[in-house]
Amino acid sequence: MNESAVSAVVFDMDGILTDTETIWDEVRRGLAARDGVPWPEEATHAMMGMSTPEWSEYMASTVGVDGDAAAVAERTIGAMAARYHEHLPTLPGAVEAVERLSERWPLGLASSSPRRLIDAVLRELGLTERFRATVSTEEVAAGKPAPDGYAKVCELLGVDPARAVAIEDSSNGLRSAAAAGMKVIAVPHEAFPPADDALALAAAVVGSLHEVTVELVEGLVGTGR
């Protein structure tokens, strides 16, 4: 096998492997409704990619749900875990894409989900062993769109971000991976499409993970770049 110009591939989780962006939104809106506070129009997109401390503080301070950030986080994550246990919706081609690309490159995962949910999802999907490094944005200084999570995964994998490819769906995720210096494949989510300026950061845009082939990934990092 010829040496690849790509050193690693790093997946996002929510909205890429699992169709859980809608569940996050439903759970958070449900908390606000139970607490009798209105849902701000911008809240859903604002929280995409935030770390647990960031979105729980946003929920407590900006949305105004009951409790401090730690209490809001516990309520939300507990509700998410319960929903996952009932049914974990997986996006088309997700498991196959991980298996396909892991045969060629080391894989990482950079997720805004808390560690508890990352481990549960990968275990449920039977993909734990496919990933050499996984990072929750709880475990770095700042969540997406800051580059910290992707930079940390590349560090753990021992690769130059310029030779790594990220797979993302959200505006903040695309911005995060691009800020880390990676090439990014965008797989836009129909319900939560990324902003035009974020989508413009992608090196490739595809309709589903079925289109994320070894050949596509290989072509994104050229020796002349």
Rank of each mutant, 00 (worst) to 15 (best):
L109C: 11
G149L: 02
G108F: 01
S112D: 06
W55D: 05
V140G: 03
A81Q: 14
S61C: 00
E74V: 10
M50P: 00
V27H: 03
V205L: 00
L156I: 07
R123W: 10
S171W: 08
G15M: 03
R28I: 06
I23G: 03
T76R: 15
V63F: 05
A5T: 14
V95M: 10
R83V: 01
P53A: 06
L127K: 11
R175Y: 05
V135Y: 13
P145E: 11
M182W: 12
E218P: 00
L199P: 08
R116A: 14
E96Q: 15
T137L: 11
V165Q: 03
P145Q: 09
R83L: 00
T20W: 09
S7R: 12
E218F: 02
C154N: 07
T22I: 08
P106A: 01
S112H: 06
S176R: 04
G30K: 04
C154T: 12
S51Q: 03
G78N: 09
A146Y: 12
T22S: 13
G207R: 11
F192C: 03
Y150S: 07
L17M: 11
M48I: 12
V6M: 05
E139M: 07
P92T: 09
N172A: 15
V187H: 11
G158R: 00
T134V: 15
E218D: 13
W24K: 00
D197R: 07
R28F: 14
R175P: 10
R115C: 01
T137C: 15
L199N: 09
G78R: 06
L31V: 04
T62W: 07
R115E: 02
E21H: 01
A120R: 12
A180E: 09
E21K: 00
R175L: 13
E139F: 01
V6W: 03
R163S: 09
R83I: 00
A200S: 14
A32H: 12
P147R: 05
F11T: 04
L156D: 08
G149Y: 02
E138W: 05
R163V: 04
L125K: 01
P194W: 13
M1A: 15
A142I: 00
A198R: 03
M80L: 12
R116N: 01
A198P: 03
V98F: 10
D19K: 12
